[in-house]
Design a protein around this nucleic acid. Structure first.
Lengths: 195, 195
DNA sequence: GTCTATATGCGGATAGAC
DNA sequence: GTCTATCCGCATATAGAC
């Protein structure tokens, strides 16, 4: 298919998103300029506006697609009926998914302040949907007397904070394999909810 | 003691730090201008430079004093010999101290990226000192067979992440009292390390 | 689809008056 | 100790050539 010289719409869009994700994660949204993103991609700043209406939308789209991917990946996981097995699936899935996308996780977590109110509400709704997935597991286990959790909401927040915390210290090729990390964290979570 | 009109050095310094802390926590260091901080205090932007050499030092001083206060407050806590009691002290202290200073905690956590390398190293050293305090407790308990922790470093990071996570959802006057929150979290931590 | 050029405004920081 | 005025650079975003 014939195409004019210098025409790369199918590839430039994703490259802009990738460059923005990397730079936002490394230096923070507010500290990164459109010029820096453009330089990383190898185009001029003005060209970015063919792919995003503004910088804010670029951030929002990164966060939204990350959370939507998170939700659909979790929906695609196998489903155990037993709450203990289900909780193990959640823990291992969460660690695995988050370690694979450190930049996106960092942004979705640190840049909430820089979202305009409407965008913030949309992102928070997606995050809440994910938290609800865990809370449902904990409630189910509590009902069946397999977990001991005096407050499922608190336990949900505690478990997610613990698991997401892996991203703050994990380094590729470090002392521990992912499988070992998953196992250790799963054991801590399991005991913390009294399973 | 006589003093010239418009001279308020003893009060303006702390007010600048307070305004900066609030604004940095709310909008992020990079998104806040010196003019905004000055406006919040009620002075002109140039006057800030009587109290700080530059914006970076203002951020660094906020983070350093927060962590130094954290370390000295922990050093001033009573010391139990039993690792289980000691761990409970740590958990309750951590939650209490952090809930009392949400802005400082947020900044110390989110603005690491915006520190120049030298400043970053200094802050990381302080943070590591605090983490070591917890790790020492866990090692001690593991040695005495009171805890079951396959990896004390991992357990340290997991516990701190879980406890610090309280700051992300706690709101003054919310559903649960601090005492209840402390108790629930302490119980989760206790079980997570097999005590 | 990308570039160059530019409009317009805000950023950190400093000089010198009071 | 604070203010006003200003230097100078970089920010986002747009217009129009190629």
């Amino acid at each position: 298919m014939a195409r004019k010289t210098g025409s790369h719409s199918e590839i430039t869009g994703p490259r802009i998103r990738a460059a923005a994700a990397q730079l936002f994660a490394r230096h923070g949204y507010a500290a990164v300029s459109m010029r820096q993103i453009a330089a990383e991609v190898g185009v001029q700043a003005g060209a970015l506006y063919l792919y995003t209406p503004d910088k804010q939308t670029l951030l929002f789209d990164l966060m939204r697609s990350h959370l939507e991917e998170l939700l659909s990946a979790w929906a695609a996981e196998p489903v155990s009926a037993d709450p203990v097995a289900r909780l193990e699936e959640f823990c291992r899935f969460h660690i695995r998914f988050h370690l694979d996308r450190p930049d996106a996780v960092f942004i979705a977590y640190m840049e909430l302040r820089n979202l305009e109110p409407e965008n913030f509400a949309a992102i928070e709704a997606l995050r809440k949907t994910y938290e609800d997935a865990l809370e449902t597991i904990l409630k189910d286990g509590a009902t069946r007397k397999q977990f001991t959790v005096p407050d499922t909401k608190l336990a949900t927040m505690a478990v997610i904070a613990m698991l997401t915390g892996v991203n703050t210290w994990y380094r590729e090729g470090g002392r521990l394999s992912r499988e070992r990390i998953e196992r250790i964290y799963w054991n801590m979570v399991r005991r913390s909810v009294g399973a």
